[in-house]
Design a protein around this nucleic acid. Sequence first.
DNA 1: TTTCCACAGGAAGGTACGGTCT
DNA 2: AGACCGTACCTTCCTGTGGAAA
Length: 412
Amino acid sequence: MPEISFSPDDSLYRDRDKLSEDYTPEDIVGRDDEIQRYHTALQPVINGEDPNNIFLYGKTGVGKTAVTRYLLNQLQHDSETYDIDLTTVELNCEGLTSSYQVAIKLVNEFRDSDNRLSNTGHPMHEVLEQLFTEFDNTGGTILIVLDEVDNIGDDDSLLYQLPRARSNGNIEDARLGVIGISNDLAFRENLRPEVKSSLAEVNIRFPPYDAEELQEVLHQRVSVSFYEDAIADGVIQLCAAYGAKDGGDARKALDLLRAAADHARAKDAQTVDEDNVAEARRELEREEVMDGIADLADQHKLSLYALVSLQHNQDDPSRSKDIYERYQELCDISHHDARTLRRVRDFLGEIEGLGVIESIQRNQGYPEGKYNAYELGHDEEMILAAMSDLLNEVGIHEDVADVVEESDRISA
DNA sequence: TTTCCACAGGAAGGTACGGTCT
DNA sequence: AGACCGTACCTTCCTGTGGAAA
């Protein structure tokens, strides 16, 4: 075992944390129009009027959350100057799949840890009553930021209730404003018309960053995060180009830059170069897929393994019928209850959503009909490595050839 | 032009579970 | 203990689809 020790290393980074998602820069680059409209929409707060409900939409990593934090910080600061009683609550709706769950989380935002509501068991109307009571107890102007609000799906009852709370007499002592942030462009369109009109009094669309804007964003962060000359020529352009390709996502571009710099640091390099970026990109991609697979439930993994084993010695995409047959055999071998074909279709769709596999729609007409076929989106070894825990646990060998053989033997 | 196939995926409903309240 | 509450996970049923064959 080699001797190992830690020592501070600050030859590259001035402040690595300033590349992180949580950091709100002092200046936001390339979002001037959006900030201007947002600022106007928030103005009533300072005037002591009813706040607007605001809806922000745009893909991930285009500055919605960053701009919101930036403006709300400023608003909080100015409201103290003008003696306005302002409370802001930011809630990320990730993992919350209904209005009910969001409402409970919101109530708990106002409460001490010894007084929290449990996540289940309460009737919805009581949760809402408690929420309105918390609003009234807090008083003043309250801005509720619901980040990634599209997670709640088509259950928009909370989004219906909140903007109407005051006019319905549910709250009397507080002025309430809702700021909804959505990554899903279709979410707003799918809301009931009455929800849409009340929630989205002001709509602000955040377009993706183009490569040039991404470069500006990166330059700004580089200046506060790294020492001079730590970044080689072309690195920023390269990260920005990848970011632009990934849907104009500044967060991804920043993550990539940080990962590249970490690689350089691990090699005791004095500068971050394009090779570091390429290496980091491979690693990030790999991590994304690995994490996605590792978090899958057993049934999903069995469906995925069924496809892997079919693709092991076959170039054509596998149709779901065949995947299902293999899946049933695998369930047999590993003593899992097989789900129905319909359910496995859902599994495959979810795995596809992670980018692990890809589907192709085929239509061969009569008599073959129309069907979906799937193939792997990444190499077999990586996928198998990511589900090795399940494979070991149920005694499915990681050697796909063995499984193919056993499976053939069963069906024979 | 119509028929026909194999299937995708929406809709609806059941069940079990973790929770509260009386 | 037993009535309720909301929800994850599943099954069953069924309609729509689009291109080759008839």
